[in-house]
């Protein structure tokens, strides 16, 4: 098997005949913190939606641990160990923080169909094990004091943390983050970067979209730049940063990030 965890090969995705991803290829190594940048509307989120099965690309292959996964249902992608957060936060907002994170334990729980009706000792053990894991994650993300608070009642920064905790609860191999720093203040962003590093050090590969250039350049080990759905540059942060094509794309799109 290759040492790439995830390979995107010549993937294209169209909406109503308009190209959103244009023949894109990239490779993510195990243990990497991999960044994707690009102007608004470049197709970054669309790419994530293709990887996580929400969209099926019209062309190309998405290879996970050597096997083609495009066209597979999103829930099966999650079962493979690819978990994500959303650019526009998608929490179960009326439900408590703990219950939100517990959803990440779904694929790790081995309860049977009849356990919805009758509880058995082994089911209770499973239930307890999973709640304890939720407890650990709440500790790690400093969310414990909000355990019973509805997620929707909390601040933006806290909600982003809950989303990440929820994805990590599933013990993913690849964690996909769509603009995790959006809406965070400077302190929160610094903390986020530390958290992402810690998570990676625990063995989770990270693939992230981010507009905060300081964060991307300091955190990511490898970066792909997308514009109008196509890759325009890739490499280590130091290279990408000074690549004239990249600078051109950002100036051209009137972005000052």
């Amino acid at each position: 098997m290759s040492d790439y965890l995830l390979e995107i090969k010549d993937v294209s995705k169209f909406f109503h005949g308009l190209v959103a991803i244009d023949d894109l290829s990239m490779k993510v190594k195990k243990g990497q913190i991999y960044g994707i940048i690009g102007p608004n509307g470049a197709g970054k989120t669309t790419l994530f939606n293709c990887i996580t099965g929400l969209y099926t690309p019209e062309k190309g292959e998405i290879i996970w641990e050597g096997k083609k996964i495009n066209g597979i249902a999103p829930y099966k992608i999650a079962e493979l160990g690819i978990l994500r957060t959303f650019q526009t936060i998608r929490l179960f907002s009326e439900m408590s923080v703990a219950e939100n994170i517990m959803s990440g334990r779904h694929i790790k729980s081995n309860q049977k169909w009849y356990n919805g009706i009758i509880h058995t000792p082994s089911m209770k053990k499973d239930e307890k094990k999973n709640w304890l894991k939720v407890g650990e994650l709440m500790d790690f993300f400093e969310l414990s004091k909000y355990a019973t608070t509805p997620a929707g009642d909390l601040s933006y920064g806290l909600q982003r943390r809950i989303e990440m905790a929820r994805a990590l609860a599933a013990e993913p191999k690849l964690l996909i983050l769509d603009e995790p720093a959006a809406g965070l203040n400077e302190n929160e962003t610094i903390k986020l970067a530390q958290t992402i590093r810690k998570v990676r050090d625990q063995g989770v590969t990270i693939l992230m979209i981010e507009h905060d250039m300081d964060m991307v350049m300091s955190l990511c080990e490898y970066i792909t730049v997308i514009n109008f759905g196509a890759k325009i540059s890739e490499g280590e942060p130091s290279f990408v940063q000074d690549d004239p094509v990249v600078i051109e794309a950002y100036i051209g799109s009137d972005e000052d990030e």
């Binding site: 829930y75 999650a78 079962e79 929490l91 959803s103 009758i118």
Partner: peptide
């Protein structure tokens, strides 16, 4: 049964689907 359902993987999965089915799918829920 309602009480048991509430405190089980199956009962919670129903709530997740109800509140946000895209998020639920992305967490591995069929």
């Amino acid at each position: 049964i309602m009480r048991n359902l509430d405190a089980s993987k199956y009962g919670r999965a129903m709530f997740y689907i109800n509140k946000d089915d895209i998020a639920a799918q992305s967490m591995g829920i069929n």
